[in-house]
């Protein structure tokens, strides 16, 4: 999965070793503003080094959601007052029903797709633009591009990814989208303005003149762990830490993630058994999120930056 939220630890989401004890702090769901779908499971056409759930063409630990499964959750979401719908994976467009799923969603509300844009032939970009035109609501395409050059991006995302992503982005722009380009910051914060300028130049070359660029803070995973430091296993949210802390800053107070097999507390903890809150959305919405993972510690430090209007610079708080 592309880095939607900032900063969690690699391998952490492969499951907690033990079920949360009575001591694990929890966060109640304040309002279900964001509904996320793990729409392509863990299946991706790329094999990025920094992918926090190791998505790959052969990672079938979570399978595609069917249009019917999504429809069911959409139906439930109306009663629960959901405000925005997000689609992630893996690569969402690996799901053959993706366009139909988006059509269903856009009848109800705005949709955002987190994509690597490498599976974006002209036909698809145009079809998506028609879906957006026919809807009252915005369809946002959030494209992950991790560098301003082939060398920089492909070192992270694999050979050929840069070229295909740039082509896909150009198709989206040509079809009328204003894609939100997201990039994980792999440079010192002081250099961000220079990189933003380089991104704007690159995008202007694709005919994109109202560029929307979002820089995500570096994740303490993979190479980042070597470059900086990973969080210690012992670093967990404690009850003491929550004194005077606004739980509303955590994504799990406003979101749930629907997968092909159950509903998780948030899009970060896809594979954590403790964060699996139920079979149905209604059930999962009625339970608080357990904050026992070390990823929760990272959320505590950086707040939720997954939504479209979150921090655009990746500045540390």
């Amino acid at each position: 999965m592309d880095p939607p939220p900032g900063g969690w630890k690699a391998g952490d989401s492969t499951g907690s070793k033990s079920a949360p004890g009575p001591d694990v702090p929890t966060a109640p769901l304040e309002a279900l503003d964001q509904l996320w779908f793990q729409v392509s499971g863990t299946v991706c056409n790329l094999r990025c080094r920094h992918c926090f759930i190791s998505c790959a063409p052969d990672n079938h630990s979570f399978w595609f959601m069917t249009r019917e499964q999504v429809r069911q959750a959409l139906e439930d979401s109306v009663e629960l007052g959901v405000k925005e719908y997000y689609f992630t994976g893996g690569e969402p467009f690996m799901n053959r029903e993706m366009e139909a799923i988006l059509a269903d969603t856009l009848e109800l509300g705005p949709a955002t797709v987190l994509t690597n844009a490498t599976l974006m032939p002209r036909r698809r970009a145009r079809a998506l633009a028609r879906l957006a035109e026919d809807s009252l609501y915005t369809l946002e395409m959030r494209v992950s591009l991790d560098g301003i050059t082939r060398e920089m991006n492909d070192a992270i995302r694999g050979d050929g990814a840069f070229e295909r992503c740039v082509e896909g982005t150009a198709e989206l722009v040509d079809a009328g989208f204003l894609p939100i380009i997201t990039c994980m910051r792999s440079w010192p914060e002081a250099e961000t303005e220079g990189y933003l300028e380089a991104f704007r130049t690159l995008l202007a070359g694709l005919g994109y003149h109202q560029p929307r660029i979002k820089i995500l803070p570096p994740l303490l995973i993979g190479e980042e762990v070597k470059r900086t430091r990973g969080y210690e296993d012992t670093e967990r949210i404690t009850h003491e830490m929550l004194h005077g802390f606004d739980l509303g800053n955590l994504l799990c107070s406003r979101a749930r993630l629907v997968t092909a097999r159950g509903v998780q507390a948030c899009p970060i903890l896809l594979e954590s058994p403790a964060a699996r809150l139920g079979d149905t959305l209604a059930e999962a919405a009625s339970k608080p999120a357990p904050l026992g993972e070390s990823a929760c510690f990272t959320c505590y430090l950086s707040g939720s930056i997954c939504s479209n209007t979150g921090s655009t610079t990746g500045a540390d708080r």
Binding site: A31, V78, G81, V82, K83, E84, L108, G109, P110, L136, Y137, T138, T309
Partner: peptide, 20 residues
Amino acid sequence: PRRMNEFLWETTTPTHFLDG
């Protein structure tokens, strides 16, 4: 009603949400 600075844009605010 729930937040003084909540943005309610036409293209990102579902009807069911507003009705709620």
